[in-house]
Design a binder for these strands. Structure first.
Lengths: 352, 352
DNA sequence: TTGAAAGCGCTAACAG
DNA sequence: CTGTTAGCGCTTTCAA
């Protein structure tokens, strides 16, 4: 292993000078610069990362900007990833500070983001679920030269270091294929079900729907009718009435539900209204979803791994900040198919 | 962050003494020992791992004992995990040395294991696929106080630090459930198919078969007949003839094939003999399997993640050797269901 | 612009 | 048995 000291000796300069060249801190004569650069090109120097972080006593502050975990079970799953990350990077003098905003409140997002900016973090990890408000924030970060990574939701016109998440289009296709399989031989309607509150935000659900529809368009199956059920109401009472009505009138045999918390609501309505045998493909290992998967009320879940999305996001930021490593501009997670027969193996398996 | 120096000051002793207590190196008076232990209990000291590895210039040698990757595509997949591990731990002065034995040759295993012992490694990661020969080797390691971790195959009567792999029984159940789903509405025989060469070794296949059978026993489905097809021949010609015969005579509609390379062989025989529509559930993301999954000749694969098994094994050994961390005594991987619609998301996804 | 030197927290050798 | 000290490789400060 070659050290800075060795390079210095080779060049006939001091370690200080070599360090200045390596980190482009300037204050080096042309002559010295050339000598050092030449040697650096010839040899294969990899700095000792342990010594590097030990030597520079800098503490890195990473801010995490996500919806409040107490308001939604999906975002609650993230917390495990956050905690694992905190442990993981403590030894490297990297500290994580959470900034939680209210899921359905864009003002809260703006306020919390403002606080985040004031804390002057070295990097940011965020799920940018409000498009317009997010634009401002991330443009500001770009101005300030603060690197950031997005996860869960991808938005255009900004330039995160990386995006972490699923290929949503393909996720929709997968959902379609599972529903197709689970309802094989049956005739009727397969629907994608949105609660309107959800669609208003996001490409998230649109992409999944596109995948879902294209899967069946390519199949061109005479027995299957594909539709969307969009229910606008917000109160549970009318939602129940409308959904039950829609399911009955359409002759629904299968539902694809892109929101993680939607499957549970739907399964309950189906049960309460005595509607029989509708296959459900839902999302994510929420406690309630797992229960319903085991009782057979949900047939499949697609796991988006929210905890690991955070974990990997922090991982990449650390590689960037601490180790100056090149990081990929996106990491698309595997599309995990969860059934009652493999769900336990996923739950037992803690984050890496 | 509290340092050894701080503890020393609190106790009125030197850092040397504290270090001796922490590492139980002895040569400490009862009095000093008590003082230090008391303080250690009261405060929450976590050593700085960077300083620790930097300070102790020790190089850890980890030996990896696995089948030769060139002889089998499954074991070839492991290599990616090995290489990722080498990179991962280089900065921590941990070096990996591979010891490859021939997959079907227990003498080779013994010879290579002997070489491994002579290299006096600090720890060993191994897939103990020959039971009797393995016993000797790992007992020897225990005598020498060299820690080891097993992956892929679990064997009794030895005491590895940990086992990494799948819950094979549950894996078999999952395979059964997928076959059940894919052949829904059809009448006929569902079989588990072994090439005899495989069963002779291992609990591996027996456990999967047990899971497979118990799934259907619980279901008690009049339309489905469950059987095992075991073919003894080793040459491809007779294997083909016998398998084609068995499939025809049994009225087979689905096959569960626990060996990763078995699915390809079977799919080819089915294609060449013009046998129609048999569902296949196979194992692992071998290149050939992925191709057949995409053409629809294989319906499902269960991914055992051989690369990640190695990666995690090394990870745990590092935690043990370098960081003195407590490691779990087993890590059972998620049972990943792969279809043509999510296979790409798994392939693109490189090891963590 | 440069080199020397003092840390970072821990280990391990050495002298007492 | 104990304390002191010289590293590990890098960063950063300070004087020259």
């Amino acid at each position: 292993m070659i050290r800075i000291k060795d390079i210095a000796k080779l060049c006939g300069v001091s370690v200080g000078t070599v360090d200045r060249v390596i980190h482009k801190r300037g204050k080096v004569s042309d002559e010295a610069l050339k000598k050092v650069e030449k040697v650096l090109q010839e040899i294969d120097y990899t700095p000792n990362l342990l010594a590097k972080t030990l030597g520079s006593n800098k503490i890195f502050n990473v801010a995490v900007l996500v919806p409040h975990p107490n308001q939604d079970p999906y975002w609650n799953l993230c917390i495990a990833g956050l905690e694992a990350s905190i442990e993981e990077w403590k030894p490297y003098n990297m500290e994580l500070k959470s900034h939680f905003f209210e899921l359905h409140n864009s003002n809260s997002f703006k306020e919390v983001a403002q606080k985040l900016l004031e804390s002057e973090p070295d990097a940011v990890l965020s799920a940018p679920i409000f498009y317009n408000e997010a634009l401002e924030v991330f443009r500001k970060l770009e101005e300030l030269n603060i690197p950031y990574i997005h996860f869960n939701t991808q938005i255009p016109s900004v330039h995160p270091l990386a995006f972490i998440g699923q290929d949503l289009y393909q996720s929709g296709r997968l959902g379609a294929s599972l529903l197709d399989l689970a309802t094989k031989g049956q005739k009727g309607t397969l629907s994608i079900f949105h609660v309107s509150e959800n669609i208003k935000h996001s490409t998230h659900f649109k992409e999944k729907e596109r995948g879902f529809r294209e899967y069946f368009e390519a199949k061109n199956d005479a027995d299957r009718n594909i539709s969307s059920i969009i229910i606008e109401e917000n109160d549970m009472g009318s939602l129940e009435k409308n959904l039950a009505g829609a399911l009955a009138s359409e002759g629904t045999i299968g539902l694809f539900i892109p929101t993680s918390s939607g499957a549970k609501i739907t399964a309950e309505i189906i049960r309460k209204n005595g509607i029989n045998s509708i296959c459900i493909v839902g999302y994510d290992l929420l406690e309630e979803n797992v229960k319903l998967l085991k009782t057979g009320e949900i047939d499949f879940l697609i796991n988006q791994n929210p905890d690991r999305q955070i974990f990997r996001g922090v991982h990449h930021l650390a590689n960037h900040l601490i180790f100056n490593k090149q990081i990929p501009d996106q990491e698309l997670f595997p599309l995990e198919v969860i059934t009652r027969d493999n769900v336990d193996s996923y739950i037992k398996f803690s984050i890496q």
